[in-house]
Nucleic acid binder design. Sequence first.
DNA 1: TTTCAATAGTTGAACAATCAACCTTATGAT
DNA 2: ATCATAAGGTTGATTGTTCAACTATTGAAA
Lengths: 161, 161
Amino acid sequence: MTTEVSTTLTGEDQATWRSYLMASRLLFEELDRRLDSSAGLSLPDYTLLARLRDASDDGLRMSELAESAVFSRSRISHAIRRLESQGWVERRSCPTDRRGSFASLTEAGWEKLAQAEPVHSAVIKEHLLGSIGEADAESFRKVTDKVGQSLGAKPGDSACG
Amino acid sequence: MTTEVSTTLTGEDQATWRSYLMASRLLFEELDRRLDSSAGLSLPDYTLLARLRDASDDGLRMSELAESAVFSRSRISHAIRRLESQGWVERRSCPTDRRGSFASLTEAGWEKLAQAEPVHSAVIKEHLLGSIGEADAESFRKVTDKVGQSLGAKPGDSACG
DNA sequence: TTTCAATAGTTGAACAATCAACCTTATGAT
DNA sequence: ATCATAAGGTTGATTGTTCAACTATTGAAA
């Protein structure tokens, strides 16, 4: 007689998942709304600009951008085209690999990002960091790191922002 | 001489945010992919079906669905129309408030959900719950509950699933 | 009891994300 | 060298989401 592994979540586990899902949806929604109203930027677009800001002056390869933001290549391609047409990003082709392209921030991109950044920080401080007590900080970080690892995030591979 | 409140996140805070963001994107992406390949269902659609399953036989009002899933009313309306056209959900108008409508699962909807549910549970167990050690469970839950509260989630208001 | 504001939900147009097909350049095997 | 295969990225069509405008109903106030 073998013990079957139940396929459904226990009440406790389901409550954990639901709490996490609800918190995430509300937080991403709030970030998106606040970035839009203060700087006319969506959260995905903010994320890309922030990732480019943290990169070297050459910018980043499309594939690096895709990996660090957890976007598909196609999504990156469309998104960068839009950001380019807004004048916030520019594309250059890669000299050493002629298939590749780099994206980097323009001057206007830096300004746009500077405009959005305080709002981004404020929302995260108020709603996420403010909810993580001194006592829970280390534990929370440990969990999110592990979830990322378990899903194949490379170390030093942070979804930026 | 006053102490300025910095508008930017410290390195530690930024690392916490990025770890959380990366974990969330990867987890939602994995869930979406696995639900799609096993049952032809997106995560948002699964979420709606699961929420309806947990409701009374009458189903749920559009507004209840919207609130519990953290979707806009418009998004609910479009999504339910699609689920209806797949034959998984049906709409009935509310007898006591003639503005309102109820959505509820059809027989085919129950079957579709039954097909998706084990995969949903498995992904959450493997990647989320499996990353939350015994020691961190209580702390993690406390944090996500607080984030939800700080963003206006009503108690007993879980983003289902 | 009529009027006005608020609530529930839907719709169509605009916008963004996904998917599959594609082009180009690089790499590895023969 | 040549060929096949893979990798980097883009594109257009399809699908999903958002936004603003709208209809219908309700509830409250005058």
